[in-house]
Amino acid sequence: MTVIDFTAFIGRLATASGETILPFFRTSLSIDNKSVSHDFDPVTEADRAAEAVMRRLIKANFPQHGIVGEEFGSEHEDAEYVWVLDPIDGTKSFIAGFPIWGTLIALLHRGTPVFGMMHQPYIGERFSGDSGSAHYRGPTGERKLAVRRCASLQDATLFTTSPLLMNATDRATFGRVEQAVRLTRYGGDCYSYCMLAAGHLDLVIETELKPYDIAALIPIITGAGGIVTTWEGKPAQGGGRIIAAGDPRVHEAALKLLNG
């Protein structure tokens, strides 16, 4: 199986999941809370239905592959090829009717993300990458993605979904970077990373991400010329505290502040 064939198949996964999700968007949804604490971690019928559709397609076409999904757990995650699925990244935006969410589809080979896609079916956008290059396809056409150069933190635009998702210590640490940049904005979930790959912002910093939150975005960002690591500068596919930057100078400067 070639990378080209995998690319076509990922397109099929994106189409099938999008067709499953869209009938639920901006309708009256039943919403469950997955959190066992006092937090709110919503999941909807759309999340479950979309992941189920993708799992069925993967098992029918690549029964030897593993699957890691947000809603239905892991199967054969020690396989050579493993699919990592987040049917709706940004469920809180989804249930509020905002189109700042997307389906994340990653393919790992021996534990390393080799292809990723973020699909936003309501807007009709797809961001994809294979670490060597990254591409956008949407209503305005198709183009290659490229991060923008940014010489210093003082010139940078920073995004995070919400500082309230961080624990008190990490929030204070994040605040050091926030004070150093030119502009900080909140919200975005997976869209922030795609806008970084597209050259519209410079830095994304988040915490407590799961593998399915980040695996698909790594090949997109690195394919566009950016860098994604943990706050410790380690590989990011396992999740945790994540920093993504378009320019290595901004990445290095932010890491210094994050590590005190």
Rank of each mutant, 00 (worst) to 15 (best):
R171S: 05
C150W: 11
E125Q: 15
R110P: 08
L165K: 13
F127N: 01
T161W: 05
E75S: 12
G69Y: 03
G73V: 07
V82Y: 05
T103N: 13
V114F: 11
P139L: 08
S152H: 14
R148N: 08
A96F: 03
T160R: 00
E142Q: 12
T160C: 14
P87S: 11
I88A: 04
R171W: 09
H76D: 03
I67S: 06
N167H: 15
E142C: 05
Q154K: 10
A106H: 06
E70L: 12
R137G: 07
E75V: 12
G116L: 14
W101M: 00
F62G: 00
L153T: 11
A146Y: 00
P87H: 11
P113H: 13
K92P: 04
R137T: 11
R143F: 04
A79C: 00
P87Q: 10
G116D: 14
I88R: 01
M118H: 06
H135V: 02
L164M: 04
N167A: 13
M166D: 02
G73T: 07
T140D: 13
P63K: 10
A106W: 02
P87N: 10
E125C: 14
F115N: 03
C150T: 09
F159V: 02
S133L: 03
T157M: 00
G66D: 07
E125I: 12
V84F: 01
T161N: 14
A106D: 01
S133N: 05
V147L: 09
D89I: 07
Q120E: 05
E70R: 04
G97T: 11
P99L: 10
R137Q: 13
R143S: 09
H119Y: 10
M166K: 07
H76G: 02
I105Y: 06
I105L: 15
R148H: 14
S128D: 09
F98S: 08
A79P: 00
T91P: 09
G102Q: 06
L107G: 09
F127P: 04
D78C: 02
G69V: 04
T161L: 05
G141V: 03
A96D: 12
R126W: 00
Y81F: 10
L85R: 04
T140P: 00
T112L: 12
T103Q: 11
G138V: 05
I123T: 12
E77G: 00
H76Y: 01
P139R: 10
T112V: 15
E70G: 03
L104F: 08
A146D: 04
K144Y: 02
G90C: 01
T169E: 15
E75A: 07
C150Q: 08
A168D: 06
F94M: 06
G111Y: 14
S152T: 15
E142G: 02
F94E: 03
Q64K: 12
A79K: 01
L153H: 07
A96C: 11
T169W: 06
G129A: 14
E80Y: 02
D130L: 08
E77T: 09
I105W: 05
T157I: 11
S74F: 01
M166G: 01
